[in-house]
Amino acid sequence: LNLKQAKEEAIKELVDAGIAEKYIKLIANAKTVEGVWTLKDEILTFTV
């Protein structure tokens, strides 16, 4: 999975969960695949 694909998957998951745009922007700015997954997990843990 490359960075672009990771971001697309994570953003789709966050949108489906009804997460606010400000958190989705954090994913869009992530620099690594690991960073994308870590941010996604943290956002889902603390906002859902």
Rank of each mutant, 00 (worst) to 15 (best):
N2A: 14
K25F: 09
K7I: 13
A28H: 15
A10K: 00
V33L: 07
K4V: 11
T32F: 02
K12M: 06
K40R: 13
G35L: 13
K31P: 06
L44V: 04
K31Y: 06
E9I: 14
A6N: 02
A17K: 12
G18P: 00
L44C: 05
A28N: 12
V48S: 13
L3K: 01
I24L: 10
N29F: 12
E21G: 07
E8R: 12
V48L: 10
K12G: 04
I11C: 06
T32D: 06
E13N: 06
I11A: 04
L39P: 00
K12I: 05
I19A: 11
V36C: 02
Q5D: 07
V33Y: 03
Q5N: 08
F46A: 13
I19R: 02
G18L: 04
G35T: 11
A17C: 08
A6T: 05
E42W: 15
E13I: 14
E34V: 06
E13R: 05
E42G: 05
K4D: 10
A28Y: 15
L3S: 01
K7G: 01
W37G: 07
W37E: 10
E34K: 08
F46L: 14
A30R: 02
N2R: 12
V33N: 02
L3T: 03
G35I: 12
K7A: 04
T45V: 08
V48H: 13
V48D: 13
T47M: 15
K22P: 06
V15L: 14
V36K: 00
K12W: 04
I27P: 00
E42Q: 13
K22E: 12
D16A: 15
D16W: 08
G35V: 11
E13F: 10
L3G: 01
K25H: 09
E8H: 07
I24W: 14
K31T: 13
T32W: 03
A17T: 03
T45P: 04
I11R: 05
E8T: 09
A6F: 04
E8G: 05
Y23C: 09
A30N: 01
T38L: 15
Q5P: 01
T38I: 15
F46T: 12
L39E: 01
L3Y: 02
L14G: 00
G18K: 06
E42H: 13
V48Y: 08
D16N: 13
L14M: 05
L3P: 01
L3R: 00
Q5T: 08
V15I: 15
E8I: 11
L39R: 03
K25A: 12
K4G: 07
A17S: 06
